[in-house]
């Protein structure tokens, strides 16, 4: 389809198409196909759903081929294949290449134990990477951000102090809710009860944001249909 590449008209089965217009129609048809699920599960929706699965898997395969297999493995083993002149050979990549091949022994039940080596390497590597990064980012900085000045003064307004107190109380109470080593009675019971309130606000906020994110996507699709596709289909629509 070289015509599509150049943005000129495409002739197929005697019909002339403009790639941009064809793209708009394809988007519109697929959008309606997915929305048809609101009416009930149907063949058109199922068709679009399976196209989505296939196209997404294909997209992932192409990106991995280009970004990982070619750039990190093939070009380092055979730099002459790369279009760039500054690519240097690195034969150490033969080790992950072999480990990767061992991963494929999953297809051979007799030798599938060999696939444990690349899995152990990858999981161990990410576990080792995780610890030093989690401690400062998810523990120390979060603790620092929780312990803000609570007394109003020259630099801290009373509303800021109250808000900081809300965060401090909220975090401590939420943590006590997740403390299961003692029964939630007395002061611990009260604290964990307040912790539940903060959790409920957090869940409500999370729910509200999720709904609004989906609504934004919906608005995007409706805007596409009204402002991009409809004028092509019905030039006098005036939207």
């Amino acid at each position: 389809m070289p015509e599509a590449q150049q943005g000129t008209e495409l002739v197929f089965l005697g019909l002339t198409f403009n790639p941009e217009v064809l793209g708009l129609w394809l988007q519109a048809v697929l959008t309606f196909a997915i929305f048809s699920f609101l009416w009930g599960d149907n063949r058109v929706y199922k068709f679009a759903e399976h196209v989505f699965v296939g196209i997404s898997a294909g997209y992932g395969a192409v990106i991995v081929w280009q970004q990982a297999v070619l750039l990190l493995l093939v070009f380092k083993l055979w730099p002459q294949l790369s279009a760039k002149a500054d690519v240097t050979a690195d034969h150490w990549v033969i080790i992950p290449g072999i480990l990767g091949l061992l991963m494929l022994t999953r297809f051979m039940p007799k030798y599938d134990w060999l696939s444990r080596y690349p899995i152990a390497f990858t999981v161990g590597l990410y576990a080792g990477t995780g610890i030093p990064r989690i401690v400062p980012a998810y523990l120390l900085r979060q603790m620092g951000a929780t312990m803000k000045p609570l007394v109003p003064g020259a630099d801290v307004g009373w509303w800021v102090a109250v808000s900081s107190l809300v965060v401090l109380v909220g975090v401590i109470c939420t943590l006590t809710y997740f403390y299961f080593s003692r029964p939630h009675e007395g002061a611990l019971g009260v604290s964990s009860k307040i912790g539940i309130w903060f959790l409920m606000v957090a869940f409500g906020a999370g729910f509200g944001n999720t709904v609004m994110a989906r609504i934004s996507l919906l608005i995007g699709r409706v805007e596409f249909l009204l402002y991009d596709w409809l004028p092509v289909w019905w030039p006098g629509a005036g939207l």
Partner: peptide
């Protein structure tokens, strides 16, 4: 980078 290569095989 090695992990990314192994990930490609995965």
């Amino acid at each position: 980078e090695w992990a990314r290569i192994i990930g490609a095989f995965a």
